[in-house]
Each structure stands twice: as C-alpha cells, then as structure tokens.
Simulated scan of single mutants.
Amino acid sequence: LERWREAGGVPPAGADEETALTAMLAAAYPAEPGPEPDPTALAVLAETAEYLGAGFADLINLFQPERILVGGWAGLQLGTRFLETVKGYANAYALTYPAARVVIDMGTLGPDAVTVGAAILPLADFFGRGGRRAEAETAEEQPAWASTVREREAH
C-alpha cells in the first residue's frame, strides 16, 4: 500500500489497510467496463506477487514444507487473483527438488486463521492423548531414608 501511495496511487482518505487494499485492487481491476485500469496499481500488484513468490521460495529452500497456505484478510484478497502468479515465481526462485514437493494453496479458515488455529491446539492435544485427560504428575520429594529402604528391599 505504501508503494502504491509513493507511486501516486490514491487510497480513500482515512481508510484502514483492508479498505485501502480493496481500493487498490478495484483501481487495478475495475469491475465496470468504463474506467481504465490504474497502471500504477497494476505494477505494484505485479511486483508484490513476485516478492511473495520469492519469499515463499526462501521458505521452501530453508524449511522444505509440505504445504504453504495463504490466508488472512490480505492473503484472501490477493490470493484469489494472484496465487497462480505467486506459485510461478516461487517455483522459479526455489530449488527444484523442494519446490516439486510443496503445495501452495489458499487457506480455508478465513481471515481469522491464526485465532482459529490457536483455539484448535488444546483440542489437538486432547485427541492426541486418545481423549483422556492429562495425568497429573505427583513429583513429591522423597525423604533420604526412603531410597535406602528401597535398596535394602531389592537385596
């Protein structure tokens, strides 16, 4: 958004980031046939897609993930239009072997993916234990004589 402003783009006055991004997308890709697409917005969005692809390539090269999911309010707005372009740049910039094994896709949890994912962690832990509660550990300190008695009983 800052790059668009610097290059002469005009977001709505007093708009938050989400509204400004929506305005930039509308300027680049007008819904109605009348207005011409804003070339500045188009250039900034194309540059952004390349930068995202290069960033994904870095993640792929460093961590070799099985999947990268694009989400959040900005990801959902940009991803529907640019995901294939971002994938192309990621594949071009990443090493061939790890790039062939990663899936880049849109997240399905909506703009609140981080919150939803964090809320699922306790459930995953619960189901990981087979639906049982965690056993409370009783780490009471034993008196010194107790270990001596246990050793004598063993003989």
Score class of each variant (00 low, 15 high):
Ala31Gly: 12
Pro33Cys: 06
Ala41Cys: 03
Leu45Lys: 00
Gly53Thr: 03
Met24Arg: 01
Trp73Cys: 04
Ala154Lys: 14
Glu137Lys: 12
Leu83Ile: 11
Val86Glu: 02
Ala146Ser: 11
Ala13Cys: 02
Thr148Arg: 15
Ala146Val: 14
Asp58Leu: 12
Trp4Asp: 07
Glu135Phe: 07
Glu32Phe: 10
Ser147Ala: 15
Leu25Asp: 06
Gly131Phe: 05
Gly107Phe: 03
Pro143Glu: 09
Ala13Gly: 07
Leu1Thr: 13
Glu18Ile: 10
Pro111Arg: 14
Ala94Val: 04
Leu123Gln: 03
Ala146Arg: 11
Asp112Cys: 04
Leu121Glu: 12
Arg5Thr: 09
Leu1Asn: 11
Gly117Thr: 03
Ala26Thr: 09
Val10Thr: 14
Val10Gly: 08
Ala94Asp: 02
Leu109Lys: 00
Thr19Cys: 09
Ala118Gln: 13
Ala15Ser: 11
Ala99Pro: 00
Thr96Cys: 06
Glu140Ile: 09
Glu137Ser: 11
Ala113Pro: 01
Val86Cys: 03
Asp112Pro: 00
Val116Tyr: 10
Ala31Ser: 15
Arg3Glu: 15
Pro98Ala: 05
Arg5Gln: 12
Tyr93Asn: 03
Phe63Pro: 00
Glu84Cys: 03
Val102Thr: 03
Glu135Ala: 13
Gly34Arg: 08
Gly117Leu: 05
Ile60Gly: 00
Val103Ser: 10
Arg150His: 09
Gly88Arg: 09
Glu66Gln: 15
Gly71Asp: 07
Ala92Val: 07
Pro12Arg: 11
Val116Phe: 06
Gly9Ile: 04
